[in-house]
Design a protein around this nucleic acid. Structure first.
Lengths: 187, 187
DNA sequence: TTCAATTTGTGATGTATATCACGGCGCACT
DNA sequence: AGTGCGCCGTGATATACATCACAAATTGAA
């Protein structure tokens, strides 16, 4: 479990045992069951989460009550309502488990402690954040450029594993297409 | 000109004169005319740019030749094809001036030098990157949640200044709607 | 194991938006 | 002072996709 975090960080920066022990001490292990909410819209967001195992969806529910999936998070991804986390405001999104899930939670205080005390982690955090930014930007390009069927096929190619793990309803909510229309793509 | 960069950085972290001089020495001033390309698709991307004055568009051209605007950048924004910049690969996007523009360019080498030598700048860079990530994620939410007219009206409210500066054609390419359809919104 | 709830496919129809086609208007460049 | 070209509006038509409705298949909780 801890090894997952360590090897994840060490894909970017090497750590001494002492450094890693310190870093680890800043995290809290949390376990959730399938369908449980980790973050609920309107509540405050105390943690950013590193996913050890399981699968999460980050969702936004619009005025009409329709749920849109902003992102999925699987093993070795970071997830939270980062806007609410960093600005310490109420969540505008929800974070919910699609499978039983184990995460490591990091408070904003500990996030800042980590980046103050462990120099290397700043480099790591910059790289993580840049990677997230670049991924979001590519999602924007895809939403602007490709129609629903193209987005579906692109995703099927890029993340075939996800198709085994999430329902078509969830996929549709991620791709920005209705369940029925998505259903007609596969056939 | 330099003051713009300094005050921009100091909204996040204060700097000594020496620190700022050093930082400034890592940048190159560049001037471009309206319609000039700063980055062209397919070329390598040597710089990330801080916009001192003017207005830029970051665009992606799809297979059918249609141009989509990924983002606008005005004074005190950072812009580049960051994927290509950080990974040192060929640009998949273009960066073009919508007005005569002055930018400060930073190479990846100097970017890394800056974050190595000036501790505080790592904090700054993390915050910038997080802000970019959060903004992108909200754009995704808007693309998933709102229809074209809602996106148009939201933008009109959020960035009224931009409406004075860019053509409707450009706006349409940013909002992900055809020029003709957008034209029917205002009337 | 059973039964309710969720998931999925599919037809019929409605609607938002794209596409094509055209004309006028204004601005930049010579 | 033209003039050529990008910008903008608008009608007619096409199309991708949403919505509504229903039944079969699958799942999961008691």
């Amino acid at each position: 479990m801890q090894e997952k975090l360590r090897s994840h960080i060490e894909t970017i920066v090497p750590l001494t045992n002492d450094e890693f022990s310190f870093i680890l001490s800043l995290f809290t292990v949390k376990r959730f069951k399938r369908n449980e909410f980790i973050i609920q819209e309107g509540e405050s967001v105390r943690y950013a989460y590193f996913v050890v195992s399981g699968l999460l969806k980050l969702t936004y529910t619009d005025d009409s009550g329709r749920e849109h999936i902003v992102s999925f998070a699987m093993e070795e991804w970071w997830e939270s309502d980062f806007q609410a986390f960093f600005k310490q405001t109420k969540a505008s999104m929800s974070l919910q488990c699609l499978e039983d899930t184990i995460v490591l939670g990091l408070t904003l205080e500990n996030y800042e402690e980590m980046s103050l005390k462990v120099e290397k982690m700043r480099i790591f955090l910059i790289k993580m954040s840049n990677a997230g930014f670049i991924a979001s930007q590519q999602r924007i390009v895809s939403l602007l450029t490709n129609n629903a069927k193209e987005r579906y096929e692109k995703m099927l190619k890029s993340y075939p594993a996800l198709f085994q793990r999430v329902s078509k309803t969830q996929l549709a909510a991620y791709l920005g297409v209705s369940r029925e229309t998505l259903s007609r793509f596969s056939s």
